[in-house]
Design a protein around this nucleic acid. Structure first.
Lengths: 240, 240
DNA sequence: ACTTATTTGTTCGTATGTATG
DNA sequence: ACATACATACGAACAAATAAG
């Protein structure tokens, strides 16, 4: 690799080479990269240089090293735009993947002050809480808790159980369109229960998204808190 | 606490009580709550019931328990709106806190393909990379890497060193206004170097924000990747 | 450096009410 | 009617970390 002094650090050239290989399909998602020594030979550099390159790629999320096994190409993240019109199934479908949902649990509970305020009901008013897991091509993407006012969506649990989609549930109640009022995003470490459902190792980060959706007149329909696997999604906010 | 059967679980009543105490200022940010046994006495419930309530509050981020020491009220998160006009100093100032910045490192480096595409320059073109730490009231909020095209912002490092603000730096180059083109958000675990700078324990989650800013004509000015302490910020996307 | 008290965390056991089949 | 499972609530004891002297 000491052909001509390009002014670009060697490790960076190697990293760029591997990144190009990932981009053009030479190294496909989930597959194992050649061993560090092998990469070192093909680029005619020292193994340390390769390691520096791989570290850079790992930090940017392109690959994941597993001690004693190899270095694997990470699956590309699901790009999840945050707009007024935000529908899980449409977003996953737009990425050429198959959306799916599965209800885990449902219950009717009294509203806490916080939830009551957001939904525009009285504190203690009955709410239907639905816990659901959502997939893209069989890989769990997020687990979400959604609250509906029980007076308006009395048997929401049974309906969701059948339709496995929030959009379809609302359509069942003659709500053909709705919109995102606000979205709040933070991150945390996954808890044990969610980790199992999401097929995620303990200690891994999740993105917590709190959202409020309203009908087209601005009346709150639902409030939800979703936990997304951070390594499987990327939110995008477009301005304009 | 066995006054009247309200139908609401005891632990929930206790949690609501403490939450109200936090909301109305009885328990202030950063201060220690009474011990579990003391809370149990005041509410006339078993300590287990208090623990269940505190667990609920901890999960929602209101309090943080420290073994051997006590349970503390968490500082409210800095709400960080993501709009076309996004300025760290303005956002922090709007929250009634004092923004500050500190340059850590600067260098001139050739553009990778990815960066070149985003900035509209050729691959390998020189870029100024600035590493900076940003605070709100002396608490570190984020650490960010920003790349500027070196031809247009030749001595950006020296200028930033003096002004400690991206907005002021751009103003120095006669750019009075600029806007956010896109924002991408994901999360990860903090690395050792960032953890030290951010005064954050290892293993804690961070929010990674990649953004591109342009001038009012749409010409890219800078690209940056910021790592925010997840437990200290909350991004908000307003629609409409 | 050591002790002691305080505080959260964990693990037993017991009992009750409620929903399910 | 009965068995089972589950969430709730209380009691007691001990472990582990921290703070104070």
């Amino acid at each position: 690799m000491e052909d001509k002094p390009t002014g670009v650090a060697l490790w960076r050239q190697v990293a760029d080479g591997i990144e190009r290989g990932i981009a053009d399909g030479t190294h496909r998602s989930g597959e194992k990269l050649p061993g560090e020594t092998e990469i070192a030979e093909t680029y005619r550099v020292n193994r340390h240089t390769v390691r520096r390159a791989l570290a850079s790629l790992a930090e940017r999320g392109f690959v994941r090293a597993e001690r004693g096994s190899g270095t694997y190409v990470e699956a590309p993240k699901l790009t999840y735009p945050l707009r007024a019109r935000t529908r899980f199934s449409e977003i996953v479908g737009a990425g050429g993947r198959e959306p799916d949902g599965k209800m885990i649990e449902a219950a009717t509970e009294p509203a806490t002050r916080e939830l009551a305020k957001q939904l525009g009901v009285k504190t203690g008013a009955p709410l239907v809480r639905i816990e659901a897991l959502r997939f893209a091509d069989k890989t769990p993407i997020c687990i979400g808790t959604t609250w509906f006012p029980a007076d308006r969506f009395a048997d929401a649990a049974a309906v969701y159980q059948r339709l496995n989609s929030t959009t379809k549930l609302l359509a069942h109640y003659d709500i053909r369109d709705y919109q995102r009022l606000s979205t709040r995003i933070t991150a945390a470490i996954v808890n044990a229960a969610d980790a199992a459902r999401l097929e995620l190792a303990l200690g891994r980060p999740i993105l917590i998204v709190d959202s409020v959706d309203t009908d087209m007149k601005g009346t709150p329909l639902k409030v939800s808190r979703s936990r997304f696997v951070a390594e499987r999604v990327e939110f995008v906010v477009e301005n304009g």
